[in-house]
Amino acid sequence: MARNTPLKIVAACGLGTGTALFLKMTIDDILKKANVDAIVETADASIAQAVSADIVVTAQDLVELVRRNPRVKEIVEITNYGNLPEIREKLLDAVKRLEQS
């Protein structure tokens, strides 16, 4: 199904400066290659609990926090930030689920 507005994706980590930023660069790259229209932002733990987003991508530690945020539609949990295929597959699966909903 075609979307009119870009997806809003939030890369979150504890402080929003290290892994979140790292993740944002990786996500930007993946989505560009997959031709997915999205705006990718970074967030720290407190923002991630309150932000409204189509997808939040984060590490295991923060998943529970984000799960309590009702304004997030999909959560993608990354275990290994060096595993590009893992990130790509989980992220694009979430995009697919959103398109089908």
Partner: peptide
């Protein structure tokens, strides 16, 4: 303190951690 507060997510991939604090 950051790691205690937010969990060991700084171990971002097998065998490597990137400790840091806020600017």
């Amino acid at each position: 303190a950051v790691c205690q507060e937010l969990g060991p997510y700084i171990a971002i991939a097998p065998g490597i951690a990137i400790p840091h604090a806020r600017p």
